[in-house]
Design a binder for these strands. Structure first.
Length: 381
DNA sequence: AAGACCGGGCTCTGCCATGATT
DNA sequence: AATCATGGCAGAGCCCGGTCTT
């Protein structure tokens, strides 16, 4: 093992020392590996468009999907200097198994160009936020690109400082970087731009505390920083116009559950809004009903045409009035199947929606079952 | 105590385009 | 010219349970 560590250190040195004439300083024990790609006149660069045979061999031995690598970042396979062994050892030490390592390299081949030093440093920085190595490994396994796409550790450090300075709760910061790891691969400038953009919206709408506003939006929608200001702006504008919201209404929506739909694709938001509107009108609702529904439950705009329509039909068929849905739209948060099952159960015990409302749908399975049990025993008395 | 209201958990990555760098 | 770094996009919900209200 000590030998391996020593080799890693040398490898790092090897990668970081470039002679003025453009030649690499090559440790003797590595020349065999380089022989396959070294031309007659001692150039260390391989011939154009030729893959590094020994690298291919290494990757194959490691179980990397070379076909995938070739498809994603073919240039990496032509490189003379790579650090696949160092990376592999590094990740093993952090608790990743060989399958995970192979998968990471297959999906983001450039990972093998990062030096041991770089990896170590990056890891240390992330450990400021994540308590365990395994947490970072699992994120890396999920999204290798987020970890490896940028080689700028200084930027990562600045990002962590910046995001921390937003005074997000530790829990929220952690959640953001777990669920949207691309956030810390963004340039500091990009992250700042979004935060400033959000603060600007707040000011524009007459809000008093732009910093708090941005903080709230981010903690409610941890994906917001990996979205673009252009996209978010379009959605904000669209919501404002299509719902004819006042500044105050819009501000309230955005820092409430409306934050969750800000990163929807623009087209999708429009399509879903139009469908919802059309459907509601066809069921005898007015524009204000649509508005109220959306203000109470913005997530309704997440539902595609098919899903929303099926769900509404199911509710109506079960004897629920559209007006009740407008009043308690949370029911739409549950799957059609779940709703259908509950409708059946409720019918059995003769549940009166007119009298009792439809809030009973907004409960966990456990609670629902308990209530049905109670209702059953009551009806048997 | 029952029910209403609400926040939060899960895991939102993998691909393409383009500008920057070497 | 090749490769790297980075921005941006499409995709398409459901469930649980803590805590406040009544």
């Amino acid at each position: 093992m000590a030998g391996v560590v020593g080799m890693r250190a040398l490898f790092t040195l090897y990668q970081s020392v470039k002679l003025p004439c453009g030649f690499w300083l090559i440790p003797p024990y590595l020349t065999s590996r380089l022989c396959s790609t070294t031309t007659k006149n001692n150039e260390t660069k391989p011939p154009m468009n030729l893959e590094n045979e020994s690298l291919l061999e290494n990757l194959n031995l490691m179980g990397v999907d070379v076909k995938m690598v070739r498809q994603r970042q073919p240039g990496v396979l032509r490189k003379v200097i790579t650090n696949e062994h160092g990376l592999s050892l590094f990740l093993q030490r952090k608790g990743a198994d060989s399958k995970v390592i192979a998968s990471i390299i297959s999906r983001y081949p450039r990972a093998i160009t990062r030096s041991a030093e770089h990896l170590e440093q990056r890891w240390e920085l992330l450990r400021n936020i994540f308590q365990t190595d395994s947490e970072i490994v699992s994120i890396m396994d999920r999204s290798p690109e987020s970890f490896f796409r940028s080689s700028d550790n200084e930027n990562l450090e600045k990002n962590i400082t910046f995001l921390t300075s937003l005074r997000l709760k530790t829990k929220d910061l952690h959640r953001m970087l777990t669920k949207a790891p691309r956030t810390f691969a963004n340039s500091l400038g990009l992250n700042k731009k979004m935060v400033e953009f959000l603060e600007g919206i707040c000011v524009e709408l007459g809000g008093k505390d732009p910093q708090a506003f941005a903080k709230t939006v981010i903690s409610r929608n941890v994906y917001i920083l990996i979205s673009s200001t252009k996209k978010v702006k379009k959605n904000v504008d669209y919501l404002k116009a299509s719902l004819r919201l006042s500044d105050a209404e819009l501000l309230a929506l955005l820092q409430g559950s409306g934050a969750e739909i800000l990163d929807l694709s623009n087209e999708y938001l429009k399509k879903n809004f139009n469908n919802l509107h059309q459907k509601m009108v066809s069921l005898g609702c007015r524009k204000t009903d649509v508005k109220n529904l959306i203000l109470k439950f913005p997530m309704v705009l997440y539902l595609g045409r098919e899903k929303l329509n099926t769900k509404l039909e199911c509710l109506l068929k079960g004897g629920i009035k559209i007006k009740q849905v407008v009043e308690k739209p949370k029911v739409l948060d549950f799957s059609t199947q779940n709703i259908a099952e509950r409708l059946k159960e409720l019918q059995k015990v003769g549940y009166d929606f007119e009298k009792n409302g439809i809030n009973i749908f907004d409960s966990s399975k456990k609670r629902f079952v308990a209530r049905i049990k109670k209702l059953t025993s009551q009806s048997n008395d």
